[in-house]
């Protein structure tokens, strides 16, 4: 029963500081892509560290982080 092992590849660190002042030059090309959901049009928005927080489809500035892919254990009580 090895289901309790978390999957190590799915850690999401999610550094999303910056915002409007972010310069495209500072985008770290090697950073991991994190997928967000647009709060308005529900599109998938893959972002890298330093990128502007903005939906590529509709331009909405509210993005939602997706649920963790790690297993979460609960007691049924």
């Amino acid at each position: 029963m090895s289901q309790q092992q978390p999957n190590p590849q799915t850690y999401t660190t999610g550094y999303t500081t910056g915002g409007a002042t972010t310069d495209t030059a500072t985008i770290d090309a090697n950073a991991r892509t994190v997928h967000y959901k647009c709060g308005d049009c529900d599109q998938d928005v893959p972002l890298k560290r330093g990128e502007p927080i903005r939906c590529r489809n509709c331009g909405h500035r509210v993005l939602y982080k997706q649920r963790t892919n790690r297993m979460v254990q609960f007691e049924a009580r």
Binding site: Q3, N69, V72, F74, A76
Partner: peptide, 12 residues
């Protein structure tokens, strides 16, 4: 018999 532990991989 009853469910005691629940291992949730995804729940949206």
């Amino acid at each position: 018999l009853a469910i005691e532990d629940v291992f949730i991989y995804n729940n949206t």
